[in-house]
Simulated assay, not measured.
Amino acid sequence: MSHRSSTQLGNSAREHSRWAGATAPLAASCACRRRRDGRRPKTRAAAAVEAETKKAVVRIGTRGSPLAMAQAYMTRDLLKEAFPELSEENALEIVIIKTTGDKILSQPLADIGGKGLFTKEIDEALLSGRIDIAVHSMKDVPTYLPDGMILPCNLEREDVRDVFISAVAGSLSELPEGAVVGTASLRRQAQILHKYPYLKCENFRGNVQTRLRKLKEGVVDATMLAYAGLKRLDMEQHATAILDFEEMLPAVAQGAIGIACREGDESMGAYLAALNHEPTRVAIVCERAFLAALDGSCRTPIAGHARQADDGSLSFKGNVATPNGKRLLETSRSGAFNEEEAAKIGDDAGQQLKAEGGPDFFNW
């Protein structure tokens, strides 16, 4: 956004003062000069102040991490492309909101509240009217939404796979016994230890740049990140290997951006409807139904991925594991690619694994 400096505003004000100090007849003539609606024409100083204080049409709420900001900028640019009126100066404003998850980096997410740590403060800002829409990484969003808020829009999904990053090995299988993998994800930890029980996993939090720096400093031997995040930051070159689904099934909603607004806000709803990518939204409905059926939280190592197959049908794979990786339950489903069927497939898959695991499976 462009802002006029105080010097510029001061110059405008001085110009107005010189005009006001003109001869009496001239001043009187000007005093009588009014618009047809009876109001005086705006001085240049008043017009400048009005332009400066003009409220944005859409205030976009986001976390302040580089990745979150990249996603907010993406949303802003898509809105500008879709709606010419939003290309005007000051029509869009990005509002940075610090969340609990950003403030506490020394503890695992599961120990400080689990899901919702990266969304709670942003949701509160939305519901209080401080922002008009909220941009979230969908994998951070709990399966329930606060009353008065809806999430009608998913942008087109990025590559959902995980990447392996290391200076000492080309893949997880090449890491020597006792090597340390840094990850804040119990899902990744469980799948790693299930296949490679001789490796160690340590809590490894922070934004992408922080994790890469710690890796370079030798704090851990390897780490894993979402490929989508690296691509959105133009940092794909840091990936040592891209992992297929057999090696590492992704998190529910990984690679997807969700945009929320207040329930009943028709103007924001219309903006978001134009940005929504329906194939992504249907896939996310399936995955989140799976997560909800398993009562998933950051304490539950759950992975799930739904996609539209080549024949147009919905294909789903999911798993749930114990944090130490000793038990891992898997399932798969297919069906019609629509919202109703997607929700049913996800819920059925989750209920199946919940029954297979038994009442003691989730007690850790």
Rank of each mutant, 00 (worst) to 15 (best):
46 A>P: 00
141 V>Y: 05
164 F>K: 05
166 S>N: 01
325 G>L: 00
161 R>F: 01
277 H>T: 13
197 P>H: 09
244 D>H: 01
349 A>F: 09
84 P>E: 01
362 F>Q: 11
281 R>Q: 15
276 N>A: 12
275 L>P: 12
245 F>R: 12
244 D>G: 02
270 A>S: 13
27 A>C: 13
24 A>C: 08
191 Q>D: 07
175 L>A: 11
104 I>W: 09
164 F>N: 08
105 L>Q: 15
24 A>Y: 12
335 G>Q: 04
355 A>S: 13
169 A>N: 02
59 R>H: 01
271 Y>E: 07
35 R>T: 02
201 C>D: 10
254 Q>Y: 00
169 A>F: 02
290 F>P: 04
274 A>S: 14
10 G>D: 14
86 L>N: 07
128 S>V: 06
241 A>R: 14
318 G>S: 03
84 P>H: 03
294 L>I: 08
120 K>S: 13
329 L>W: 05
245 F>A: 09
337 F>E: 03
303 A>V: 07
81 E>M: 07
109 L>K: 08
118 F>W: 13
323 P>V: 09
11 N>W: 07
158 E>P: 01
62 T>F: 05
49 V>T: 11
333 R>V: 00
214 K>Y: 03
3 H>S: 15
20 A>Q: 15
300 T>H: 13
343 A>I: 09
266 E>F: 08
71 Q>F: 03
2 S>K: 15
224 M>K: 02
181 V>G: 03
150 I>A: 03
70 A>T: 11
193 L>K: 05
73 Y>L: 08
313 S>M: 04
322 T>P: 06
361 F>R: 08
213 R>A: 11
336 A>H: 12
102 D>M: 14
295 D>E: 15
333 R>M: 06
164 F>V: 06
39 R>I: 06
68 A>T: 14
186 L>M: 13
105 L>C: 12
319 N>A: 05
39 R>Y: 10
305 H>W: 12
350 G>N: 09
323 P>M: 10
52 E>T: 07
263 E>N: 11
242 I>A: 07
191 Q>G: 05
251 A>E: 04
183 T>S: 15
127 L>H: 00
102 D>S: 14
108 P>W: 10
235 M>N: 01
295 D>Q: 15
46 A>N: 00
22 A>F: 08
341 E>N: 13
342 A>T: 10
314 L>Y: 05
92 L>N: 07
180 V>R: 10
100 T>H: 12
347 D>N: 09
279 P>L: 10
338 N>M: 10
315 S>H: 13
219 V>E: 00
38 G>P: 05
105 L>Y: 09
182 G>D: 11
324 N>G: 11
270 A>F: 06
